[in-house]
Design a protein around this nucleic acid. Sequence first.
DNA 1: TTTCCACTAAATGTATACAATTATGAAGAA
DNA 2: TTCTTCATAATTGTATACATTTAGTGGAAA
Lengths: 232, 232
Amino acid sequence: MAKNTQIAAVTAPVLSMARAQSLAEQAANAIVTGISAGALMPGQRIIETELASLLKMSRVPLREALKILEAQGIVESVPHRGTRIAMFGDVRVDHICAARIALERLAFVEAALVYQSDASLLTGLDQIILTMERAAERLEWIEVSKADLSFHREICRISGNDIVATLWETLARHVFIVFGHEIRDERDAKVMGPQHRRLRDLLAKGDVAKLHVEIEEHIMRLRRQRQVTPHV
Amino acid sequence: MAKNTQIAAVTAPVLSMARAQSLAEQAANAIVTGISAGALMPGQRIIETELASLLKMSRVPLREALKILEAQGIVESVPHRGTRIAMFGDVRVDHICAARIALERLAFVEAALVYQSDASLLTGLDQIILTMERAAERLEWIEVSKADLSFHREICRISGNDIVATLWETLARHVFIVFGHEIRDERDAKVMGPQHRRLRDLLAKGDVAKLHVEIEEHIMRLRRQRQVTPHV
DNA sequence: TTTCCACTAAATGTATACAATTATGAAGAA
DNA sequence: TTCTTCATAATTGTATACATTTAGTGGAAA
């Protein structure tokens, strides 16, 4: 039994740890990161052989990744004629924002109900906000973005609505790419924390009306402060 | 030149024709259809080798299909431990409906604006409604379901919001599965046409307020009249 | 010149083969 | 008995090889 508890202690963190992700998942994330960072350009065609060797894997897992990204609208493909990265112009950003508002309002309202019945769940958000603020202090924007997405993912998760959570994963990739094209400076770093804290507090209070307003404002920040992306 | 116009006449319908879909797409549709029809049960584990030979293809395209369906929440998988079909109980149906309402309200409102500026686009909807009514007369429920989804897909398309259209494709698969578990009779056949005609007319008038009400009612029909699915 | 055709090269789609991981079950120890 | 341990089978993950389709090029005929 002594051995058992020891094993439990060792494996406990492993259980909550995500299993090593497959090459397909890695590839999907790498491609999204690449688009976000500008290494892959919107509209650019993807040659499977090239990208596969670039990612040091065979075409099989890469193709699986492309199928995922196609289902999520990150890339577009025509049978036998290849795959290309979707465009991310101003119009598309508007679309992303509109969809986000529609979906996240639902998630926030449902999550607010859950937080009402169990306020201790708020610690999950607090943790994420802390991580975000730490990253913001050091101007590590990619980490800030990831924490930002984690914040919203957590709310979708807490809402208990699996469908919303699934749809969010699609949206999150689009948002991450748009984040990558944002221009940020020290002033933004100061804003990130408080903005999410306001959302957190409104969730804690269950103030749905104010949430609706705050969510829209929060999301609409995306439409400003982005790099000029000519005709894409 | 005479020959050129002839070629144009011949190729024109071909251009609008979807290219032969890959085995991966076929597999994805087959799996969704199978779940909808009850040939594949929610919760059931999928053995790649089995299903691949059942669909008369190798594991490669099947796995691509599974990756797509996983991204859409139709199946769930754990690395190295296999894939299983998601559960479709009452709670999930509620989630689907809630997400649908949030997303489709957006799509309908944006589409209404487009129809205002070009009423001729309404013929697209009229065509689909006719198809739906024909199928309803013959009690061909699967065709009715497909026409129903086409109707909503058309509205997402007309809205011009690519992201909403992408998210709809995910939702559509869930809805199709739920449709499959519905119990329908002659009375339903009489309702399908008028219900969609009302939506069409409200879009034509641009009556957003009434649209919001009608959409919610329309979607919420799903929550009733479904087969009992014990504890799934 | 322009158009058509055939041919080649390149890329995608699919199948098979191999590697790594996990589940299963029997044999042995507490 | 009950729990380990280890070998084996089954299944998933990945790489390689082959098939099919498409894009591009060059030349021949109108």
